[in-house]
Write a protein that binds this DNA or RNA. Structure first.
Length: 494
DNA sequence: CTAGGGTTAG
């Protein structure tokens, strides 16, 4: 019975027995084990020493000391620990010493990952681009074969600054010619993306060409789309159209997002007609433009004053089941107002409410602007009151539009009242808007009122405009009180 | 994974 029980009695007896009855010497095995054990001890010593000794210890010495103490060789992980700790403690000046020892003294291979992290540290963290490049070139000295991964890491560092960009060429050359690293699509993607980010589209496009011509890599849609989006983001019409041509020449079809970006650029550059054409083209490419596309194009045709097309587009949306939203309605109402179809505009508001598409400040500002333009400021004020009832407050623009309308009609006291109201709400008008008001008030002898307004804007650190200064200088009637004078002096910086 | 974008204004 007892003999069947596995020999797991006590460790001590087992240990001694196995020692005595062992047939083959286990020395090499044991040595390895012992070495691991020593290294572990050394590592522990290093870790405790590094945390207990004074600030900014010399970690390399600690490493060397710990491992000599246990008579074993330092391990790669010990070096990793040292680098990590140095980084965390910002003791960057010690890193080169560690590298030198790794290069000249140690014999073990170093994984590429180690260099990739350091390249990123040098480039992105410390902004020491030359060091990043030098380290990259030095990788083979560390018994490590650099691959495209470290090259990619270096490239993304270099592409982030002008100084780095200047070195890209040299790095590419050396890594291909001397280090025999072959660029991959990923390398191009990194460079192209980085270049787009810093708006160097010319270089990005050049790389796109180089990829195909010199490396035989077909740039994929992703690359083109990336550049296209960025080019659109900048919004330069010629640049966008130039790249669009290329985009299409290679045979790629624009995505819905590409079209949307493109249309935005066209509309912003006053090309309403082209925007509309793009919408057609989008549809013929089998895509259904969404509300945003329609709204953008609608804006485009309206600013080109093609109101017929605007009507058509709006109808088309409804027919195709693209539900207009506040933005769409606002643009559309703006179009109606441009045609002086103000009442139709107001009818649209009712229609919106029926569709449960709540009009917003923009909707009302558009209409208020329209009625003020035809001199019906009272109606505008009425709209403002209505807005309030519906829970939509006016904003700076609302008040400015109304005040300008009132000034235009010479109703200065009323303008003053509105100014008061907007001030209470915390809206600070721009000085140019008030300039006219103050000047006109002085003209009409409302000097006291003008002064009140003036004082209020100066209180809010808005410097009076040119006209106001002019009036101030001419008007000897002005009787400043102390508060006003103080505020003025503060503003003018006396 | 479906988010957000897009609107008025001298």
């Amino acid at each position: 019975m007892e003999t069947l029980i596995p020999k797991i009695s006590t460790k001590k007896t087992n240990f001694f027995r196995s020692r005595k009855t062992r047939k083959f010497p286990l020395l090499p095995f044991k040595a390895k084990w012992q070495q691991n054990f020593d290294q572990q001890q050394a590592m522990e010593t290093l870790i405790t020493e590094s945390t207990t000794t004074t600030q900014n210890p010399n970690l390399l010495s600690l490493l060397i000391d710990s491992f000599t103490k246990y008579k074993c060789d330092p391990t790669p992980s010990a070096y990793s620990f040292v680098i990590k700790t140095l980084t965390r403690n910002s003791q960057f000046d010690q890193i080169p010493l560690v590298l030198n020892r790794l290069e000249k003294v140690e014999k073990f291979d170093i994984p590429e990952r180690f260099f990739i992290n350091l390249i990123k540290l040098y480039g992105d963290g410390l902004n020491q681009i030359e060091n990043a490049v030098d380290l990259f070139y030095r990788i083979p000295n560390f018994r490590c074969v650099p691959t495209v991964y470290s090259l990619n890491a270096l490239l993304s560092v270099l592409c982030k600054s002008k100084q780095g960009l200047l070195m890209v060429n040299q790095v590419l050359l050396k890594s291909t010619e001397v280090m025999s690293i072959r660029l991959e699509e990923s390398s191009f993607f990194i460079m192209i993306t980085a270049l787009c980010r810093i708006k160097k589209f010319g270089y990005a496009i050049e790389l796109l060409h180089m990829m195909l011509a010199e490396y035989g890599y077909e740039p994929d849609y992703e690359m083109y789309s990336r550049i296209f989006m960025e080019v659109c983001e900048r919004g330069d019409y010629d640049e966008v159209m130039g790249f669009l041509e290329e985009f299409r020449k290679v045979g790629f079809v624009l995505s819905g997002e590409n079209y949307s970006d493109l249309i935005r650029v066209l509309v912003k550059n006053g090309k309403g007609k082209e925007g509309l054409d793009m919408l057609y083209r989008m549809k013929s490419d089998g895509m259904k433009p969404d509300v945003v596309c329609y709204t953008r194009v609608l804006e485009g045709v309206i600013s080109s004053r093609d109101f017929e097309k605007a009507e058509e587009l709006f109808d088309e949306m409804l027919v195709l089941g693209v539900e207009p939203n506040v933005y769409t309605f606002n643009v559309y109402i703006n179009g109606l107002c441009k045609q002086n179809k103000i009442d139709e505009g107001f009818k649209m508001v009712e229609y919106m409410e029926k569709l449960d598409c709540k009009p917003d400040v923009v909707t009302y500002n558009t209409l208020i602007g329209a009625v003020c333009k035809v001199g019906e400021v009272k109606r505008g004020k009425e709209v403002l009151r209505m807005m309030g009832l519906k829970g939509i407050g006016g904003n700076v623009h609302t008040y400015r539009i109304l005040i300008d309308g009132l000034i235009g009609k010479g109703e200065l006291l009323e303008a003053c009242g509105l100014f008061e109201e907007m001030s209470v709400k915390g809206f600070v008008p721009r000085s140019s808007s008030l300039d006219a008001m103050i000047a006109r008030m002085c003209e009409q002898g409302l000097v006291g009122e003008a002064l009140k307004v003036l004082n209020k804007i100066v209180e809010r650190n808005v410097a009076p405009g040119e006209k106001t200064w002019e009036v101030l200088l001419c008007e000897s009637k002005f009787d400043f009180n102390d508060a006003t004078r103080n505020n003025f002096e503060r503003l003018v910086g006396v």
